[in-house]
Design a protein around this nucleic acid. Sequence first.
DNA 1: AGACTAACGGCACGGCACGTGCCGTTCTTG
DNA 2: CAAGAACGGCACGTGCCGTGCCGTTAGTCT
Lengths: 177, 177
Amino acid sequence: MRTTLELGQELGYAKLSIEAIAARAGVGKHTVYRRWSSKGALLLDSLLSRGGSALDYPDTGDLRADLRRQIQEAVGLLAKGPLSPLFKALVGEAQHDPGIAAALNERFIAPQAAKTVARLEAARDRGQLAPDFDLDLAMAILSGPLYFRLLITQEPLTSDYVDRVLDALFAGMGPRP
Amino acid sequence: MRTTLELGQELGYAKLSIEAIAARAGVGKHTVYRRWSSKGALLLDSLLSRGGSALDYPDTGDLRADLRRQIQEAVGLLAKGPLSPLFKALVGEAQHDPGIAAALNERFIAPQAAKTVARLEAARDRGQLAPDFDLDLAMAILSGPLYFRLLITQEPLTSDYVDRVLDALFAGMGPRP
DNA sequence: AGACTAACGGCACGGCACGTGCCGTTCTTG
DNA sequence: CAAGAACGGCACGTGCCGTGCCGTTAGTCT
């Protein structure tokens, strides 16, 4: 997995081959195929083994600050760090490999989304949010524009942009009497 | 281009090969390579030749209804139609091919986004929106969650979901005295 | 301790699609 | 009507795929 990330950063996902990974790692191809059914599955595990756990939510009581901090951290890892191209390529791979799509969702997207929703829920329970607000939707409105920038328009994800999304979200989310 | 879409729907993008397209079309490979530099470029042109133009905005004066109608139409084409898997695969391809990413943006995403912004602008000029509202951001908040569902969580894009996103957007967008 | 077995690294193989030559033919253009 | 470009067809070398088959190593069980 270490070699996968190394070679992936050097060559890019498109030119990355299991053959080259095995050779560089000093390993037979069988040993790779025995554990991973495809290049995508290998990359998913490789990426999750790095920093997948680092994305935990703080709960300082200040919802907006907590959201901001966690998102900035995720953006730093997935959109700015050296692994960003590989993560994007993995999402790309998910578009034509249902197995990868399912695994990516199950092991990364869904847990991450659940954490966001849980944090929103905590805030709602404390009366910081309108009780009828759709938390899943709020999560999507928060994440959606960021992934949109990352994957579609490919513009840089500045922290200013994150703040603007947060502003917009809270403008429609605040406690309504 | 017709053969590309046909074969693409049959085999899926991953198994689609220029070799097979040329053979099915009764054409030499040179003839394909002369016009398109990659499978992705060919698919982009093929997709744009279909229904790319059908996504124009109505302007009935009712902003919400117009947005809703245009989005439902786009969703029908890109997320529900038979070309949906190919469109998703193209976005996937853009993740590791900067040329495709640029072309996709320039020829599809940006024009579409510009239309949305223009429609919002018209509404703002008529006083239907707060004058200080960030239209580009509004567009992203509208599109983002939809692409998020389409590409990331891969859940179905129901018209109910579209409506909920619209609701959320307008809750934070309405004219503020 | 020793025997058994599963996993291993290395190598070779057939298969496929890539991208690019070269052929002789057909179509377009001036 | 002549020149040249574009064409369909075919073949080639290349790279990686996924899978066999070796002989060796490492872990397990009694």
